[in-house]
Design a protein around this nucleic acid. Structure first.
Length: 315
DNA sequence: GGTAGACCTGGACGC
DNA sequence: GCGTCCAGGTCTACC
């Protein structure tokens, strides 16, 4: 790890390489996660978040693109063990080690996916922990995107832990940023509190029970990062979590790098409806049928498809 | 296995 | 400003 002085403040940096091809912005813009706190993004481009390291150090980090990878900056002088942990967390968030050559070879034959290799599409931005991604996914269901942002912000504001140290951005802006709350912290709340303070509505028991199970050791979500389960078993495992239905489970599989199931929500139906059915209402089976031939890559093909409907929104 | 209704919130709309 | 309606997935009960 190198140190340098930025605007009079000592910061520490490390550089990580990615499996080629890699495009920082393609990962950031892969889905809406970069808009959900504690992620914060500016067009410089810098992606920030707040992470908790092995030694329980909580620090704000900044991620910037460099040739073939990413540079990570923190205000903390980290131990060797924490540096390694930080590398692992950033590598997970940006999915640096995954490569997509098999998918790119297939995609070259489909004009609607012709852009994917050139723009190094495929990696999806992930939170440092699967718990954070799972809670955020539940908070996307049956609500507007504005509602999701509001609920996630409320959890971070109310129960997140402030970043310590002298993170450069914190010093610049004078504000202390917070982590996404741990399961242990949320397990100390109650369904009532999550409903009334964080305004999670009927999702409150789902989030509370999830936090409680992880806190008690009944559910080891982080082990799924090294998952060896067949995709169908993993899907069943996720579906068994209260609040995780078909859409949410498929979305989580997509984040985990398993592309066998398409997360079909009302937006997916809208896209398929306009693309192939003249805007007539379609059901889930129509969405699935259209991507069946993509086999183990079907969710990624769906996710990266160059949708006509999106162009109508741009015009 | 399929389906209806309830869940909760915020935004849009009409008055 | 207030009331009503609607959109958004998942759960439970029921067939």
């Amino acid at each position: 790890m190198e140190f340098l002085i930025v605007e009079g403040i000592v910061v520490h940096e490390l550089t990580l390489s990615a499996a080629p091809p890699f495009d920082f912005l393609s990962v950031v813009y892969s889905h809406g996660w970069y808009q959900l706190t504690p992620f914060r993004f500016n067009e410089e481009p810098v992606l920030e978040t707040v992470v908790r390291l092995h030694s329980d150090v909580v620090t704000n980090i900044e991620m910037r693109p460099v040739d073939g990878g990413v540079k990570v900056r923190t205000g903390e002088d980290l131990s060797d063990s924490d540096q390694k942990n930080l590398q692992d967390q950033v590598s997970w968030m940006l999915d640096l080690e995954r490569e997509f050559s098999a998918f790119y070879t297939l995609a070259e034959k489909e004009p609607k996916l012709a852009h994917v290799r050139k723009r190094a599409k495929g990696r999806l931005l992930r939170s440092p922990t699967l718990f954070e991604d799972l809670v955020k996914t539940i908070l996307t269901t049956n609500t507007s995107w504005a509602g999701t942002k509001r609920m996630v912000s409320a959890l971070v504001d109310l129960y997140g832990e402030p970043a310590g140290g002298t993170g450069s951005e914190q010093m610049k802006e004078g504000g202390v940023r917070k982590t996404f709350p741990t399961p242990q912290r949320l397990a100390k709340t109650s369904e009532k509190e999550l409903r009334e303070k964080a305004r999670l509505g009927y999702r409150s028991p789902y989030i509370y029970q999830l936090a409680e199970k992880v806190d008690k050791g009944e559910l080891d979500l982080e082990a799924l990062k090294q998952n060896q389960l067949p995709v169908d078993e993993l899907y069943k495992f996720l579906r068994a979590i209260k609040g995780v239905g078909g859409y949410a489970a498929a979305y989580l599989l997509l984040l985990l790098g398993m592309y066998d199931r398409i997360p079909v929500d009302s937006w997916a139906k809208k896209l398929v409806s306009v693309e192939w059915y003249d805007g007539e209402p379609v059901g889930e089976k129509h969405v699935l049928e259209r991507f069946e031939t993509w086999g183990e890559w079907k969710a990624l093909a769906f996710w990266l498809w160059d949708w006509d409907y999106m162009h109508t929104l741009e015009n």
